[in-house]
Amino acid sequence: MQKLNQDPFLWTELRYAIVFDRDQLAFKTLFKKFYPDLYDFGYAIIKSPVPVEDIISEIFMKLWLLEDKLMEIENIKTYLFRSIRNNAIKYLERQHTHVDISEIIDFNYQYPSVEQEYISNENLKIIQQIIDELPSKCKMAFTLVKELGFTYHETAAIMEISTNTVDRHIQLALRRLRDSITCKKINS
């Protein structure tokens, strides 16, 4: 754990501590690191707090009880977000039987609207509105890249699509944003 305190996040160290030493602190470090983002991401899909909390705790229980092949998980971040996405879709499908939710999923991520140095609150609201109007999959890809800091490659792994498709989604989002900003002249 000493090494962990020096470097806030080292997956290789963490998984050894979790698996070999059954180290609760290491497990908690992992949980705390990802919980807020996982929650927001899951909430954007399900839009109801309790099922999102249940899905997150189920995923982490599996990790602690070693039901998944922990040592074979190379990228824990991608693994966790993919698990959230898949379980959230499964949850919605149970609610509406016989519908392929993955195709019609309504992804709605709330961007934090705290006053920023360069962008006024008013402009942020307008940007949020433009994002809300993007196609759902495009919105998810854009959020994963922009707000959650994933690379195109990782985003592709989470959404189970190709890297090229991620690039197309990002291109579309950027163009719509730029066009709307220019059109509405919101900065003037």
């Binding site: 360069y118 402009n123 707000e147 800091g149």
Partner: peptide, 20 residues
């Protein structure tokens, strides 16, 4: 200025609020 606004929006990521 349009470019400026879009660039700042893309590059800015909010920190986690303490309530979280």
């Amino acid at each position: 200025p349009d470019h400026q606004l879009l660039y700042h929006f893309i590059k800015n990521r909010q920190g986690i609020p303490s309530s979280t």
